[in-house]
Structure formats: structure tokens, C-alpha cells
Design a binder for these strands. Structure first.
Lengths: 253, 253
DNA sequence: CGTGCTTTTGAAAATCATCAAGTATAGTGG
DNA sequence: CCACTATACTTGATGATTTTCAAAAGCACG
């Protein structure tokens, strides 16, 4: 039941000065919280933001760390997780570009975040963002929206963790990944892009789905044997029969 | 694995007219979202609110229902749940007095809510609250706070569902209940109020913890045999050794 | 082209679920 | 108020899914 925990070295590798116009050109602004701020006031956002590059395996947020900064992911993917003293770990989600990290009620983070792929993040001071929110109430609205969406996903995941079988969990996971990639890449609707990339390791999938790596591997093998998926390599899955996968994921046979 | 699902009859039993001053006298205002509104403007809140009494077992929110109303619980407890076509159910939380129900991103509720005890709720129209929020941005701040708190609890629960053993789950649950009751009743710190009330049935506990009623029952029996708890009756638990329960709950031995 | 890590596969063990009674509790009507 | 019935809870025996332990195969990186 113990999960291999990565070294997760704390990293503040790059914190360059921030040119005033960087935010305007940011690829991720359109889908992130930052789009709450009109172009002419972007300099105020830029003023409180620094960027950082996070190498694979390094931490962005340490569990229990003082929450005096927020983050916005501009590139790469992170795993968000909670862990137990003996090393057991539950991944509560994967965060990709555009994701706002750092909603915290208390003054410390309840979860950790580590880079799954090389990442770039935008870093805001808590007080700075607080001051900005006073002038732009839209930010709060946006954050409420973000939090509500997260909450819906969390509820869905609780159902998965509490009540679904290993097979159902994997089917749910793969479909969610599929939906995510097709919506993010703005792929045209007609393109049946069924190949889903899995940037995370089996241990991450296991810790996300509340299983062991062996069960994940075995279950994927069985899904392959049942011709529901193909596994070109360990980190990509071809969804051969999304409809039947959906039936399995939802548990109605 | 199938869970007994209650009849959950939809109920709009009582929807009385609302005197303008009711909100001012509301016992729950101090701890609820409603305290965001100053006394002199309470009539505006009262204008969009109606109250309803919900009998035991009846539904407040139906899963998938159009989310054009919000609720605030003024008395009693509700179970919030998601279910699967075959009847499997995951309880995502229990909501008591002061709880705001209805944070929804999409236009429909992702979960259902049923009365565990006789309840009273305050019902607000979505549009009405939306208009109120335009004038009182504090409401949004408060809702963001509520959502963030919920999110932290959800993450904690994911760790429980994905990684904890039955024994750890029960210990966590009982301690959380204990902390809740001691903070809600404003019991003086010195009173070692170790007796915790469990208003919900074993099936609710099971569906909350991702277990079966049998496992819940057996695990409680074992905790009793280990002198960690006492069971005066089926619906109250005496936490004999909270410290050791905490050690078990956190999984560090 | 090794070497180390990840993934897969196999066999045994364990926790938890299912099936099946039996006991206690609560609610109802006499 | 008490007996009766229905429901909820507990307990036992069995079984299945998943975990654990173990090792081989596949990849990736130096």
C-alpha cells in the first residue's frame, strides 16, 4: 500500500524580472483567471507576478507550506496530492496550463504540487492579489467559478474512489483524459482523436484512482484484451470503443 | 455493493410567506452566508427567501435538478450524495444548520440532498441572489470562502476514500464528528464532551466512507473491543481515547 | 550497450464484500 | 402501556476483488 514518493526537491530555479507587457502576450490568459483584468490594467498584474521554471519532479507547492503565494500554470502538468506519514499518497488532481493553484482557506496549503513535466508557472503574492481583488471584483467571481468547478470534479472523484471498481475507475479516467485533450487542443469535432496521452507514471495513475500500480497495469491489460483500448506504448492509450468505455465508467451495464 | 436507497419523495411541504424581519432573528445568520448583509438591508434578503420544512427522508435537492434555487439550512441535517444507475451511492457530505447549499457551476445540481432529520431550510432564487450579489460583493467573497473550505474537506475525504483502511476511516469519521459537535455547541474547552451523536444510519456512514454497513458495524465493534470507543446505543459514540483514535485516523503508528 | 527504473505478469495473502441469520430497536396500533 | 411488526443493526461464514510479494520484461538514459 506504500507508494513510492519522489524526491520532490523544493525549487525556485528561475524567478526573472517581469516585463510589463508579458501578461498581454500570455498564451494562457484567455483560459485563466488573469483574463478577468482588462488590457489597460495588465501592468498591475505584471507588477505582482514573477515567472518560474520547474524541472520534472520538483515541487511547486509543498504540503502544509505557508500559503502566501498563488500560482498560475502556463506550461506543463503538475500532480496535486495529499500524503500520509507512512508514505501513502492520494493524488487529488492533475493541473495543466491555465490552472489556477492556491485556493486556500487557511494560511497554509492542504496539498502539495509537483511537476510531472517541465513546467512554467506565474507566481503571485497573496497580498498583491488581494489588493488587486479590491479593484477588480471580477477576479473573485472568477475564483468562485474556479472553486465551484473544482468542487464538482471533487465530488465526481469521491464517487469514483468510494464506489467504483478498478475497471470502472480506469474507464472513467481514460475518458476524462480523452475529453480533456480533445477540448484543450481545440481539435475539430470531426477528428476522432482517440489517442490519449498519459504524461504521468503508473504510480501517479494508481495514486489518483486509489489503486496500486499492479492493479492499474493489470486492468489496462484486460481492457486491451477486451478490445476497448490499445496501448501503443506505456504513455499513450487509444480509445477504441469510447461508447462502451462510457457504459463501463458509469456502471450501467 | 448495492446500497439501500430511500424513497426520497420530492417535497415542497411548507413555503410560507416571509415576514421582513425573520432574517434578523434567524439563529443561523451569524454562522451562515446571510451575515454578509447588513441589518438595514435584510429586507432585501427576506424578499427573495422562502422557508420550507422538510420531513425525514424527503429530498431538498434532486440529483441533476435544475439549479435555479439555493438553500440555507436553518435546522436539521441533510445527506449530500451522488449515485450510480445501479443504486450505488456515495455520500459526499453531511450538511447541518448554517450550511449553504447550491454552489453550482452548471445549471443543474451535481448531487442530491435529503433530510436525515426533520429540517428547515431557507430557499433563495438564483436570480434573486445574483441581483443581491451585485450590490453586496461581500456575498461573493463569503461564497468563495465557503467553496474553498468545502474543497479542503473534499480533498481530505479523497485521501480517506482512496488510501485509508476501514479502521482508519471510522476513526477519522468519529473524530471529525466529535470536533464538529464540540465546536458547534460552543461547549467550553474544559468540558471533555466525548460523546458524539450520529444522527445518520449505518448505511449513510457506509456510503460516506466507501464501505458496507457490515464493515462499518464490525469495525465499530472492534474499536469498542479495543477500548477506543463505547457504544451507549447505535446512534451515539463515546470517544474513550481521542488521542489514540487520532493516531489511527492519521495512519501513523 | 549496459544499468537502472518503469511496467508487466504471476502466485499467495488479506481486506473487505456478499450472503445469511439472528438480535435489538423503534414505531404502530390495539 | 404493552405487544407486535418492521426496520435497523450486529454477527458469522464464505467468497471475490484487490493488495502484497516476487520476478521477469521492456524502456530510457548515460
Amino acid at each position: 500500500m506504500l507508494s513510492a514518493s519522489m524526491s520532490a526537491v523544493r525549487s525556485t530555479i528561475v524567478v526573472p524580472l517581469r516585463p510589463a507587457s508579458v501578461c498581454a502576450k500570455c498564451q494562457q490568459r484567455s483560459i485563466s483567471v488573469c483574463n478577468s483584468i482588462p488590457d489597460e490594467d495588465l501592468h498591475r498584474l505584471a507588477a505582482i507576478a514573477t515567472t518560474a521554471a520547474i524541472p520534472v519532479g520538483h515541487g511547486i507547492i509543498e504540503e502544509g507550506e505557508k500559503a502566501d503565494h498563488f500560482y498560475n500554470i502556463t506550461a506543463g502538468t503538475a500532480r496535486l496530492f495529499k500524503s500520509m506519514p507512512d508514505g501513502r499518497r492520494q493524488i487529488i488532481g492533475f493541473a495543466g496550463p491555465g490552472t489556477f493553484l492556491g485556493l486556500a482557506v487557511s494560511d497554509s496549503f492542504g496539498f502539495g504540487a509537483e511537476a510531472l513535466e517541465p513546467m512554467r508557472v506565474c507566481r503571485f503574492s497573496r497580498v498583491g492579489l488581494g489588493r488587486l481583488m479590491e479593484d477588480f471584483a471580477v477576479i473573485e467571481q472568477r475564483l468562485l467559478q474556479v472553486a465551484s468547478t473544482e468542487l464538482v470534479l471533487a465530488h465526481e472523484h469521491m464517487l469514483l474512489l468510494g464506489r467504483k471498481t478498478a475497471r470502472e475507475r480506469l474507464a472513467s479516467f481514460l475518458l476524462a483524459r480523452g475529453a480533456m485533450s480533445s477540448s484543450c487542443t481545440m481539435a475539430p469535432a470531426f477528428s476522432q482523436h482517440r489517442i490519449v496521452a498519459l504524461p504521468m507514471a503508473r504510480s501517479d495513475i494508481a495514486d489518483y484512482l486509489g489503486l496500486t500500480i499492479e492493479t492499474v497495469s493489470r486492468t489496462l491489460t484486460r481492457l486491451k484484451a477486451d478490445r476497448l483500448i490499445a496501448l501503443p506504448d506505456a504513455h499513450s492509450v487509444d480509445l477504441l470503443d469510447p461508447a462502451r468505455l462510457k457504459v463501463i465508467a458509469d456502471g450501467d451495464f
